[in-house]
Amino acid sequence: MGKFMDVAANRDYSKEWQAPGSFPWIFQRPKEPIAQREISVRDNYIRCAKGQQPYWMPAYFYESNIVWPDAMEEHPVPEVDGYDWWGVYWMMVESAGGMITKPDTRTITDFAKWKEEVEWPDLSLVDFKTDGQKIQQMLDPERPHIYECVEGIFERLHEMIPFEESLMAFYEEPELLEEFFQKMADYKIESTEKVLKYYGRVDGVLYHDDWGTQRAGFFSNEMFREQIMPATKRFLDYLKSKVEFIELHSCGKNIQYVPMMLEMGIDMWTPQLFINEPDYLHATYGKEMTFTFPLMLDPSWQETEIREAVRGFVDHFGENGRVMCWIMTENFNAEQEAIARDELYHYSLAYYNKLYGRE
């Protein structure tokens, strides 16, 4: 057992490990129950994610619970500067609100030597059972439970070696790259099995793999289809057999990959803000895929203006029943958010009752 896996194997998972204020810590916090709704919050969320005529438009994040295991050390635990169980060194960047790998990180000397040098985590050594019991206590049974599956198949490659070398492997070592991605898919399936076994009900999986820059995807569509899709689809096919829906987190202007996202069975995508055009996505793919789009509340808005903005959002994006509303305020204004959520529920409920003939 390597030194990084040794730390993970000997951690007391009955304790809370994440640093207060970090994303894992925020995601793990218990949420107040949601008042009685027309149907359960869980069932309505799944309806929206799968395009099955929801009763109201979900308020993204607020209406779900995230399953973020402390036992899955894809990042350092706690989430401060340090090593994950692959031996990758991570640094917290406060201005970005998250972690990045240390520049020029290298856990293998050369990609061509990954079979000899990559130290794969031995999951049998980790106390998922105790961690799962702890995490389950913080989950609301009325909300959908979504496993946050971070560090996707491509991301893990460029976390082990410099990014430019990862891209060169697509050209120089395509067969060896395919073997790596398929081996990583095996690992993703094995690790997800632990979550499904020990963390209670899991309704959906939020799979992370960033595929683009602010201008376009990293890969041509042909390269994506030939070298990213096969292993990714195999993992997603496994997920489809186990959970109700798959959501994708993929930063970058990745509109070009939406047809292939659909082929791989992805139900829902939360596109990176401000660089992917909501109107285009809604008009082009809105009947086939669920999207989360932001509703930005101006800090000067009073209740009347907030409610008017929410109604406009529903009128604009509600027609297919496949949009969730991500209510955003400056400095997490709880009062503005509460008003917006109230209007979102009541107005979209009436909207969908009329749309689907439930009146």
Rank of each mutant, 00 (worst) to 15 (best):
S64Y: 01
E277P: 02
F235C: 05
K102G: 03
K253G: 13
E79G: 06
I34Y: 10
F181N: 10
D6T: 11
A231G: 13
H249Y: 12
K31R: 15
E303P: 01
E148M: 12
M1R: 15
L236T: 02
I339V: 14
W68L: 02
Q137P: 13
P54H: 10
E359P: 07
W326E: 10
Y238R: 07
E159R: 13
P294R: 06
S124I: 10
H208Y: 12
W85F: 14
D203A: 06
S348G: 03
G204I: 03
D342T: 09
V258T: 10
I39D: 06
F4M: 04
K31W: 04
M57E: 02
E151Q: 15
D279W: 06
I146P: 00
E308N: 14
T107W: 01
V41S: 04
P121W: 03
Y13F: 13
A9K: 04
V7L: 14
L139Q: 03
E263V: 09
P259I: 05
D122M: 06
M260V: 10
Q302K: 13
E165F: 09
V314I: 12
T232P: 02
D267G: 04
D140V: 09
K242Q: 13
P141N: 08
D43T: 14
L206H: 12
L176K: 10
G21L: 07
Q336Y: 03
E337N: 15
Y285T: 02
K3F: 03
E173W: 11
Q18F: 08
E263P: 02
G21V: 04
E179C: 12
W25E: 09
C149D: 08
E222A: 15
N254G: 15
L196A: 05
F163E: 08
K354P: 05
I26D: 11
G212N: 07
E288I: 00
P230A: 03
M289F: 05
F4R: 05
P144I: 00
F317W: 13
L196M: 08
T284R: 08
A9T: 11
L123P: 00
E63K: 01
Y352N: 04
K242H: 06
A216M: 11
V258A: 04
S64D: 09
E308C: 13
S22K: 01
T213F: 10
E16G: 11
Q136F: 00
R42M: 02
E359T: 12
S95L: 12
L139C: 03
Y352T: 00
Y147P: 00
G204H: 01
Y147I: 01
I306P: 07
Y198P: 00
R106D: 01
P24A: 09
G321K: 10
E32P: 09
L167F: 12
L344I: 07
G312K: 15
K115H: 12
E175C: 04
M260E: 13
P299D: 13
N276G: 08
Q336P: 08
S250G: 07
